[in-house]
């Protein structure tokens, strides 16, 4: 992509996000649609998020075990895995899965609504399509991703506990105690807060791509595809930004 159009696209997306703040907080509030979207967004990605969370915890534990054993530091596995999952792996993997599942489906859905004039039809039916379609979806992704991340973290940690028990035994209470002893407020809160930004970015990018998708069925596929690609990239960029900010605040 040439630099110029990349800049133009970034600008357009930023103003799209700005429009979200301008229009989103003025009535008429689409509460019913927001709840419906939260349900759809959360429910759709639940199985994927659960499975990846489980595998993430299990693999981290099984892979780190031999190395840790070499140093006689097996008892540190819960702390290390806990920190890794909660600070980094949980948020980023959940966000990427979420982008793949929800970002693309929002892009495709709004894209096909644009192409088949459903968005215009809403506009002539007394409805602000930006509020009804975009604001509700962006809010839903922003609110649901943190919830899903917490869930994935929990499942991942439980999988780690199971992984530890495949050789040797720990009790769940001891494991939990170990994990919690290694975590501080500064580990948990920034990681939690950044998931809101990830969710917001996924929603805005998916909606932007779909809302302004090109004519034709090709445009719909493209909207879905580039929603995922751009959202994934932005998630990493935001993550980099987050680590800089927590660094400056002395939380790393």
């Amino acid at each position: 992509m040439p630099d110029e159009s990349l800049l133009a696209e970034t600008g357009a997306m930023t103003s799209f996000a700005g429009r979200f703040f301008r229009e989103g907080f003025r009535p008429r509030y689409e509460v019913a649609e927001l709840l419906h979207q939260c349900y759809v967004v959360g429910y759709q990605s639940l199985p994927m998020v659960g499975i990846t969370g489980f595998i993430m915890g299990m693999v981290l534990t099984l892979q780190s075990r031999p190395t840790m054993a070499q140093f006689g530091a097996e008892s540190w596995i819960p702390v290390m895995v806990g920190l890794t999952i909660i600070r980094e792996m949980g948020p980023i993997i959940t966000a990427l899965i979420f982008a793949g599942k929800i970002g693309s489906s929002i892009g495709a859905e709004l894209g096909s609504m644009r192409v088949t004039e459903q968005i215009d039809a809403m506009e002539v039916s007394g409805t602000n399509p930006f509020k009804y379609l975009v604001v509700t979806r962006v809010l839903a992704t922003t609110l649901m991703l943190p919830v899903l991340t917490v869930l994935a973290d929990a499942i991942g940690l439980y999988a780690s506990y199971l992984g530890l028990n495949m050789r040797g035994t720990t009790t769940l209470a001891l494991f939990a105690n170990n994990v919690l002893s290694g975590l501080s407020f500064g580990d948990v809160l920034p990681a939690f807060i950044k998931t809101y930004f990830f969710g917001f970015a996924i929603g805005v990018i998916g909606c932007y791509k779909g809302y302004f998708s090109d004519k034709g069925t090709e445009g719909v596929g493209q909207a879905a595809n580039s929603a995922v690609v751009v959202a994934s990239l932005v998630i990493f960029l935001l993550d980099l930004l987050a680590v800089q900010i927590t660094g400056l605040m002395g939380l790393n």
Partner: peptide, 20 residues
Amino acid sequence: MDRLRAKVGFLFQSNALYDS
């Protein structure tokens, strides 16, 4: 505008039925 649009029906070229 909304009140006016309630009095004007629009049949879209692609029907624009809501798929969902």
